[in-house]
């Protein structure tokens, strides 16, 4: 299990989450083409696959099979760990 903090400590992984949050349910091929063409990130498919694996291990990405293809979805639930640990409270000073 990878912590949510480690998963977020990488620019490529944050961009992947941005793209999945904007429009969910993407194949590895679609994520690769978006990272290359929209963000100029010329990573190998294997590298992107590893980033997705790490995000999945942290629970920030979940995968689902539809037909014979695998789709990746953003799961924001682990992010609540951050505000639970450091609640946002009103300051009166």
């Amino acid at each position: 299990m990878v912590t949510v903090f480690r998963a977020l400590d990488d620019q490529t992984r944050r961009v992947i989450l941005d793209e999945l949050a904007a429009s969910d349910g993407k194949t590895l091929f679609e994520i690769c083409s978006i990272l290359t063409t929209r963000h100029g990130l010329g990573l190998t498919r294997q590298a992107i696959s590893q980033h997705l694996g790490l995000l999945e291990s942290a629970g920030l990405v979940v995968t689902e099979r539809r037909g014979r293809s695998k789709f990746h979805y953003f799961n924001p639930v682990p992010l609540s760990e951050i505000t639970r640990r450091w609640p946002i409270t009103e300051r009166n000073d």
Binding site: T27, L28, F29, R68, S69, K70
Partner: peptide, 10 residues
């Protein structure tokens, strides 16, 4: 083909 289709590769 299964491996390509799984990753969405045309």
């Amino acid at each position: 083909r299964d491996a390509l289709v799984e990753d969405g590769i045309p």
